[in-house]
Simulated assay, not measured.
Amino acid sequence: MHATSTVDSTETTTMTSAPPSSDSRTFGRALSDIRNGFKQPELWGHLAWQDIKQRYRRSVLGPLWITISMGITALGLGLLYSQLFGAAVGTFLPYITTGFIVWNFILGCLTDGTDTFIANEGLIKHLPAPLSVYALRTVWRQCIMFAHNMVIYLIVIVIFWNDVTTPNYTMTEGGMTHPGLNWDVLLAIPGFALLAINAGWVVVLFGIASTRFRDIPQVVSSLINLLFFMTPIVWTTDILKDKFGGTADWRDYVAELNPLYHFIQVVRAPLIGNAVSWHHYAVVGGITVVGWALALVVMRNYRARVSYWV
């Protein structure tokens, strides 16, 4: 596949034959890299799709295995935890299903993000393309997988339609009431857009850092399980309040101080008719600004060094 280079000849020479100079370390160069990356959707889009096809090469069902795997996991854990927590299957299974779908997107961006530039070593050294192309490749690949998994969401919603559309339904006995599935479901679109935008800075920041410090992918992998169980995916905030009573203490902040909880809620809540709290959007918006600021600083200072570190 031929790709048109959008990197000027001076920068290409700098990256391939000599250590980067201080002149290349500007926010203008970093922003230009990102803009030029977005101008090549045929490149990163093709690479992302090839990743999916390569993963399921010679498989009879191909990418459908993504959907089947998600469906089996959501069904098994949904039935188990609904019994453990005494929750109604009709509302708890959609809750867990959507939580898993969004979590898998976040998980993929974190784990694949740390390996983005390392895995693309050959292309980075031989293809004069913007560095952001490889970050977009990773994010778009996760978006494709997210779209596959949404098939399971549609199936679950159809099966439990009466449960999730009932006004003022509760997840657990005596828990918070929710309005039920309505036109607020459209809020999941900007919610996922925020998620994808944040995936961009996560991949850029962790990807560049991992090329310099190869322990970072191992650290992230080690923390994934802890992050999963600390995030309300297979449990709800109602369970914490019911378990420890209504008094306000540190337990009430276990979920609220977890940024992943807010990222999941901006997509999950409207999809299953849960009450949509605007403070989730405020937290996600703040993290978006800070995250991209850090990513741009890293892009400015170390973008030209990635080809030497991989």
Rank of each mutant, 00 (worst) to 15 (best):
G285D: 03
Y308P: 07
W292K: 04
R300A: 02
G273A: 09
T247D: 11
S277L: 14
V290A: 00
L257Q: 06
A248S: 11
A304M: 13
Q265E: 14
A248G: 01
A269C: 06
A282P: 05
Y261P: 08
S307T: 07
V289S: 02
N301F: 12
R300F: 02
L296D: 00
G285C: 06
L260R: 05
Y261W: 12
L296H: 11
H262G: 13
G285N: 01
L260C: 05
N274A: 14
V266M: 01
G245L: 09
Y261Q: 07
R305S: 08
N274F: 15
R300Q: 04
H280P: 14
P259Q: 08
F263D: 01
N301W: 10
L294H: 05
R305W: 15
S277D: 14
Q265P: 07
L271D: 05
D252I: 03
V266I: 13
T247A: 14
P259H: 10
Q265A: 13
A282E: 14
D249F: 04
K243M: 14
N301Y: 02
K243Y: 15
N301K: 12
P270M: 06
A275Y: 14
P270Y: 07
L271S: 10
G246R: 13
R251H: 12
G273E: 06
Y302M: 11
M299K: 01
Y261F: 15
M299R: 01
Y308M: 08
V284R: 03
V290R: 02
L271I: 13
V297C: 07
D252H: 12
Y308D: 04
V306D: 11
W250L: 09
D252V: 03
A255N: 04
V266Q: 04
L294D: 00
R303W: 07
G245H: 09
G273L: 07
Y308R: 09
G286E: 06
Y281H: 08
R305V: 07
N258V: 04
T288M: 00
W278Y: 13
V297G: 03
R303L: 13
G285S: 08
K241I: 13
V254T: 08
D252N: 07
S307G: 09
V290M: 00
Y308N: 13
A275L: 15
A269Y: 15
L257E: 05
A293N: 00
H280Q: 11
A293T: 02
R303N: 10
V266P: 05
P270D: 06
G273S: 07
S307K: 13
Y302T: 03
V266S: 09
R300S: 03
L257A: 12
V306L: 04
R300T: 08
V290W: 02
S277Q: 15
V298K: 01
